[in-house]
């Protein structure tokens, strides 16, 4: 079987290397070169990983949603493998995001957790997609597994903006999103470097994971050997 998820076998490794280099340089600048922020001081330096993680987590889960929609229309297995990869990477990034947020929140807000819209939405998101990963583990038939998890992914993705706005009405404390346009130039470079670093790492992980998923699928879909045949 020709595997579309393995068309560029070297690319993920190149991206992985690039990602590590970008992340190392970006973090170095962020930690040692960029000046500390006026109000929050050194604690603010976590922004250089926190904000890029947030962008990329959202990007990975958006890609999972796109994969789910394409799979339901085209029924092509490669999109199922890509969706599985994107959900896993997105959940890991989302979990890291919550951890980094807690580390930042303790010295800044004085609490580990706060019921702020973005924080709560991220937590809900992580749980929703963990549920979908669990569903994939419990369904043995690959066809059903693919369709059901695509359906669940679409339903969970539609929920994200609703959760965000409902929690926002409910309670709010988080500062406005940081983006290169809201921070001054000295903070801009490490933020961009790390954003691309994590983007490369994420893409590489999704590609590698999709390849593994494709290989597993190929093994599952292969007809069982005839009786008496040597395996």
């Amino acid at each position: 079987m020709h595997d579309d998820n393995n068309r560029f076998p070297r690319l993920p490794w190149i991206l992985l290397g690039l990602g590590i280099i970008f992340l190392a340089i970006g973090s170095y600048i962020g930690l040692f070169v960029a000046p500390p922020e006026a109000l929050m001081g050194q604690v603010q330096r976590i922004m250089y990983v926190h904000v890029p993680t947030a962008w990329n987590a959202l990007l990975a889960l958006t890609f999972a949603f796109v994969c789910a929609v394409i799979f339901l229309f085209k029924s092509d297995w490669k999109w199922d493998a890509r969706m599985e990869a994107a959900i896993e990477v997105g959940v890991v990034l989302g979990f890291l995001l919550c951890c980094q947020g807690s580390i930042w929140a303790k010295p800044t807000w004085g609490v580990w957790w706060d019921w702020d819209p973005r924080l709560t939405t991220t937590a809900v998101l992580v749980f929703a997609f963990l549920g979908i990963l669990a569903l994939r583990k419990f369904v043995e038939d690959p066809g059903r597994r693919a369709i059901w998890s695509a359906v669940a992914t679409i339903i969970a993705s539609v929920d994200v903006p609703i959760v965000y706005y409902s929690v926002r009405w409910w309670n709010s404390l988080h500062q406005l999103q940081s983006s290169p346009s809201t921070v001054s130039r000295q903070f801009w470079l490490p933020l961009r470097m790390n954003a691309f670093g994590i983007l490369f790492l994420m893409t590489a992980f999704i590609m590698l994971r999709a390849r593994v998923a494709s290989m597993r699928l190929a093994q599952e879909l292969v007809p069982p050997p005839a009786v008496g045949e040597r395996v």
Partner: peptide
């Protein structure tokens, strides 16, 4: 599927937060 008692709340609870 197997273990439906676990899976249904796991999928449903995060979704119905709003």
């Amino acid at each position: 599927v197997r273990s439906k008692q676990t899976l249904l709340p796991l999928l449903l609870f995060p979704l119905i937060v709003p």
